[in-house]
């Protein structure tokens, strides 16, 4: 007789994370994103050849742009396709909390996205002969990957069919939002990533305010994703 226990949220998250990893390895998305992640390296090589080697700050901007593409590509498409293809019926008919579907996917896709970005950043800096990345730069990339993945997850739960496209469009609008007056730029996820990286002169304590702002925005988007997926029907 089989055990009648119900899986915990953590064990369900781990199972869905392993499932996501296996599917990622056997699909094409990972290899497409490796190619995309190599673009900053190409940028660094070309500029160095032209005698204008980019600085860490320039490459960080490029990495943020790549992040805006990769996170929706992984997270929004993964969640959106699951809902659109109705494979969620398999997951939601199981005795697992709905949020475990999002957390399981994030547990795999956030580290993969971050690894691609970090690898790309380190190699691009080497190619530009700009040394190694700053600690805050790496922290900002890591925290930014999580925050933007949560944005992508929330948008995918709100509009599964066009989740990836909408998430990319939203984040492309978010990028210039950081240049707007102070009160509005606080709403920009990419602005908070830049602030946290401390690679710009954004005033005293910009890294701290960036960390706080990023945390608040990540929590807001995370709550939207969790609440939305709780009520979604298959």
């Amino acid at each position: 007789m089989t055990d009648r226990s119900v899986p915990t949220g953590i064990s369900a998250t781990a199972t869905i994370a392993a499932l996501t990893w296996r599917r990622l390895l056997r699909g094409r998305a990972l290899w497409v994103s490796v190619v995309i992640a190599l673009l900053p390296v190409l940028f660094a090589v070309i500029h160095r050849r032209l005698g204008m080697p980019p600085k860490e700050r320039d490459l960080f901007v490029f990495e943020t742009l790549i992040l805006v593409l990769l996170a929706p590509m992984f997270v929004a498409s993964s969640i959106g396709e699951e809902i659109e293809d109705r494979t969620t019926t398999y997951l939601w008919s199981r005795p697992v909390p709905r949020w475990a579907v999002v957390s399981g996917k994030l547990c795999t896709l956030v580290p993969v996205t971050f690894a691609l970005l970090l690898g790309s950043f380190v190699i691009a800096l080497r190619a530009a002969d700009a040394g190694t990345p700053s600690v805050l730069g790496v922290v900002a990339l890591a925290a930014g990957t999580l925050a933007i993945s949560l944005v992508a997850a929330a948008i995918a739960t709100l509009a599964p069919k066009h989740g990836m496209a909408l998430a990319i469009a939203f984040l492309l609008v978010d990028l210039p939002l950081g240049a707007l007056p102070a009160t509005l730029q606080e709403l920009s996820v990419t602005h908070q990533i830049r602030a946290l990286s401390n690679l710009w002169d954004l005033g005293r304590g910009s890294a701290t305010s960036g960390a706080i702002g990023l945390t608040v925005l990540a929590v807001v988007w995370g709550v939207i994703a969790a609440l939305r997926i709780r009520r979604l029907e298959a």
């Binding site: 899986p7 199981r94 005795p95």
Partner: peptide, 11 residues
Amino acid sequence: TVMAKLAGVPS
């Protein structure tokens, strides 16, 4: 196997 795990069967 994945479906069994998600249904509560120990890993």
